[in-house]
Design a protein around this nucleic acid. Structure first.
Lengths: 186, 186
DNA sequence: CAGGTCATGTAAGTCGTTACATGATTCA
DNA sequence: TGAATCATGTAACGACTTACATGACCTG
């Protein structure tokens, strides 16, 4: 349910129409998010009613009219609020949106949220590793059904390892960048 | 939309009620799949109507009656069919279900599907790495918005790397296991 | 005796996908 | 001329979540 916020981030980077947003979601933002144009049109309408975006109707010769969307003051405030809000149920996708949008709010708050999520993923990883030790002490001897169960567990371990490493990398980079700024180096 | 097949795998491992299935999805299968009990009840009803599962009403003293579900011949056939069917749009979760259920069908077909997905993830990884080289040749110098964009790209690269490695590991393990069987060692 | 577990279900709402519709322009 | 791109939208359906309802048993 953070499509609204993904759109706020994208529109903060550059204003655009619903159609343009749909194209962006196919490309750069689509690395971690996908949304159809119908979905985007409906959410944009909702966001307009909520006052998060302003619409500017652009008439074009030949091509159909365009609705250019721009983030309003209220929309920016909502983005800042959401970026700083802790969400223990956030998916990796949502966290990626927060990272991408960090400069439109408080990067330190985003870094703090990442620390919390890194810790909870590290806990999960620990649980998985304990299951691995307890239930599969001799992986080389496995075959058939228990081998397949083990391989899925290995996948879970790999995913959690990756998350923990990535969150750590991002946290460090965000802090290094913040230090840079306080030291006066742009 | 492969909840049906995840349930078929789980019921193939052991018959059970909707309630029990919901608990399993919270635990072992929940490593890579989550489903609420309401969802499971509705899907089970659909599966019963399709003839994929048979129901046995078990009366219990004290506790409410149980509906024990068992995979039918038609359900097993459907699972075998699905396991062997190539699906270029399959998510990692769905592939994990196929791995976990491989022994109920043809493990070689599952291994072939994994090869295809490993290749497509390797291609994606290549694209991401090219973007990295082209747009972020000097990561250490990045700051602010472009740093944040780079960090998200790094996340995408990590995810794809992890997938490629995992699929490779699983493929090799499945093949080693198949060789074992053909050589007569159980 | 309050709270958790076993066990199933209805109802309402949100979210997302798929199909369809329009209509001009550009390119092969 | 047929397909693709630009640009928006309606309608219907399917998937999934959240809240509510029931009722007995067991544990602290």
């Amino acid at each position: 349910m953070a499509l609204e916020h993904a759109i706020l981030v994208s529109l903060s980077e550059r204003s655009g129409s619903g159609y343009e947003l749909a194209r962006r979601f196919e490309r750069s933002i689509g690395l971690f998010w996908n949304a159809t144009h119908q979905q985007i049109y409906r959410v944009l309408k909702r966001m307009e009613e909520a006052g998060w975006v302003a619409v500017d109707l652009v008439e074009q010769s030949g091509r159909p009219d365009k609705k250019m969307y721009t983030v309003s003051t209220a929309g920016h405030a909502e983005l800042v609020r959401w970026l700083a809000e802790p969400d223990p149920a956030a998916t990796t996708q949502e966290l990626a949106v927060k990272i991408r949008g960090a400069s439109f709010g408080d990067p330190a708050a985003v870094a703090a949220e990442l620390t919390r999520h890194r810790d909870s993923h590290a806990e999960r990883l620990d649980v998985y590793r304990q299951i691995e030790k307890r239930d599969f002490p001799d992986p080389a001897a496995l075959h058939g059904r228990s081998l397949h169960q083990y391989l899925v567990l290995r996948g879970g371990i790999r995913v959690e390892e990756g998350q923990v490493e990535w969150f750590t990398e991002v946290r460090q980079a965000l802090r290094r960048d913040a230090d840079h700024h306080t030291k006066g180096t742009p």
